[in-house]
Amino acid sequence: MNIPKSVEIIEVSPRDGLQNEPKPISTEQKKELISRLANLGFSRIEATSFVHPKWVPQMADAEEIANFCNGLGITFIALTPNIKAVQRAIEVKVPQIAVFIGASAAFNKKNINKTTDESLDECEEIFKKAKEHDIFVRAYVSMAFTCPYQGEVTFEEVQHVCQRFVDLAADEIVIADTNGYANPRMVYDRFSRLRDLYPTAVFAGHFHDTRRMALVNTLAAMQVGIDKFDSSMGGLGGCPYSPGALGNAATEDLLLMLEEMGVETGLSYDQVKEVSPFAKSLSTRATYPGV
């Protein structure tokens, strides 16, 4: 089996896992979660999002969370959907930002009321501003396999977004199964073709577990050499603009699989499993049963 010797797990529960929770989560609870995750040894943690509180009230404390993360001395990621968000991130010295663009124009329009090309045009200024301040850019291709609004997403649509990200010098390109409807054959084929087209680009995988295929999709991506994956404690998360989509790949599941396969991660399954109940306690919708 052709798999990487080591894999980086990027923990996304503080942002992706909690942002859509209907009941407010206190800043202190978020800090506690981030502190526990930092102690586990995650190399990167997606901690917050610089979006307008009107749209995502759960992320209204972004500056305070960013300052807390800087105080811990960890490498953290913040979502920055527009140039104003990037400016806010710069002011509090965020080391890495994430930008999301839907390969599906229908999804992109539903999500941020812009076409894919309009969002790509806006990215030019975002990338330029980030690079001026030596900020690492994670560029997400959302709905990279299927879309609840348009159905199948073609490879050409995904490549169109990837090409712009490559031209703009993204540090990392994340291919995301945002609604959790990908299957291993689709994943293997899509990542294989992207790696052939862009051999020097750094790719990562982001899989949702709507149909309980996040792990097998991860394994399919590993088969073509992908060695960076997002996951969320307790499988928390989900996309509000993807009806029926469940949470992210559960960190516990992913880590257990990798440990059993002898793949190095720098993390301990037993230690991660101990923190999972606290993460799930912050959610009113957690359904992940645990392993």
Score class of each variant (00 low, 15 high):
P243M: 06
K228H: 15
A106W: 08
A182N: 05
L219I: 15
A60Q: 13
T200G: 05
Y181S: 12
D16C: 04
V187Q: 07
S26E: 10
S232T: 05
P53N: 07
L267D: 03
F278S: 09
N67Y: 11
T200P: 08
L282N: 02
G238Y: 08
K228I: 15
T154S: 15
L40P: 12
C239Y: 04
Y149R: 00
A204D: 13
F136S: 03
G205T: 10
T80M: 11
V86C: 09
L33W: 06
A106N: 13
V137G: 00
L267V: 03
P53W: 02
E32K: 15
L236G: 06
E21M: 13
Y198W: 04
M257I: 14
R138M: 13
I112Y: 07
I34V: 14
N20Q: 14
A62K: 12
C69G: 06
I9G: 09
C162I: 14
N183C: 09
L236W: 02
K228G: 07
L246Q: 14
T116A: 00
T154M: 03
S242K: 10
S231A: 15
N248K: 03
F191G: 05
F155G: 01
I9M: 11
I77N: 07
M213P: 05
E46C: 05
F107M: 03
K30N: 11
G234T: 12
C239P: 10
A182C: 11
L40S: 10
C162A: 11
Q58H: 07
R164M: 07
V141I: 12
P277S: 06
A204R: 13
A170V: 01
E21V: 10
A144H: 01
S268H: 02
P184L: 10
L215G: 10
A38D: 02
E8H: 09
K110D: 06
I101A: 08
L197F: 09
G17C: 02
T200H: 13
S242T: 15
D171P: 06
G247D: 06
R211G: 09
N179M: 12
G17R: 01
S283D: 11
G247P: 01
I173Q: 03
D177A: 05
E28P: 07
V137K: 00
I65W: 11
V153T: 07
E264H: 11
L254D: 07
K23W: 10
Y241K: 03
A105Q: 13
Q58W: 06
F165C: 08
P95W: 00
A98T: 11
S119V: 00
D196H: 10
Y288C: 00
Q96T: 14
D121P: 05
V224P: 10
